[in-house]
Nucleic acid binder design. Sequence first.
DNA 1: TGAGTATATAAGTATATACTGATATGCTAT
DNA 2: ATAGCATATCAGTATATACTTATATACTCA
Lengths: 116, 116
Amino acid sequence: MEVKAKEIEIEKASMVLKLLGDKTRLSMMKLLEKNECCVCEFVEIFSISQSAISQHLRKLRDVGLVKENRKGQWIFYSLNKNSELYELVLNILEFIPSQEDRIKKLEIQGLRISCQ
Amino acid sequence: MEVKAKEIEIEKASMVLKLLGDKTRLSMMKLLEKNECCVCEFVEIFSISQSAISQHLRKLRDVGLVKENRKGQWIFYSLNKNSELYELVLNILEFIPSQEDRIKKLEIQGLRISCQ
DNA sequence: TGAGTATATAAGTATATACTGATATGCTAT
DNA sequence: ATAGCATATCAGTATATACTTATATACTCA
């Protein structure tokens, strides 16, 4: 039996799609699908200013797509699995090629932040 | 067994998501999921200028999301099922509430174009 | 406490986008 | 041919967006 997707009102859906319709944010979301990342890692990965990264993350957080989790001086971002939009997001991310090589590169450079 | 979604390079994917990230275009695509529609119908439905509708359709056509089919003086648009993006689009449209009431309204007003 | 690091916000700018009105193009039918 | 309708394109405009630099805030650790 087909399971029907949970519908999302069109204003909200278009807003989310517009957010994902930016290459940087879409890559961030794909990375967050499998990893927790902090702002400085994104700065390293995307080679844009820390300010720009912060602004992208704020937009994603404002609609509840990601959540933050402070660990000491770092703030780690991850996908918000409780969002009503999570199913839609996962569906879309399935079509996006893995970005794990970018994380690997960070690890090789010794720039991966990990604090447990 | 899980069937893996066909991956789409991230530049292309973000471009498509940006296109769908507009309320008018997203509604158009949802309508086209179940109907062929011509420009003048969209003008009626969305109450924006014919020029604006035409420009939206051109953007959707330029990336191959829709195709056109001239019938006499009308040009009917429909989803391009041969697009590599079709699967992604269908996946997304599943989350969008039906817009069929807008077509019904046209029919009631006698404004639905149909030529066979 | 104060220096150093991580992140957020403010202000400004260049570009992209969605729209309008005017005009061009293409088809139909008299 | 030409009038009439459907659609596309052009030109212009107002707003949104993505970025930068500068500054503020929050935390850590000596």
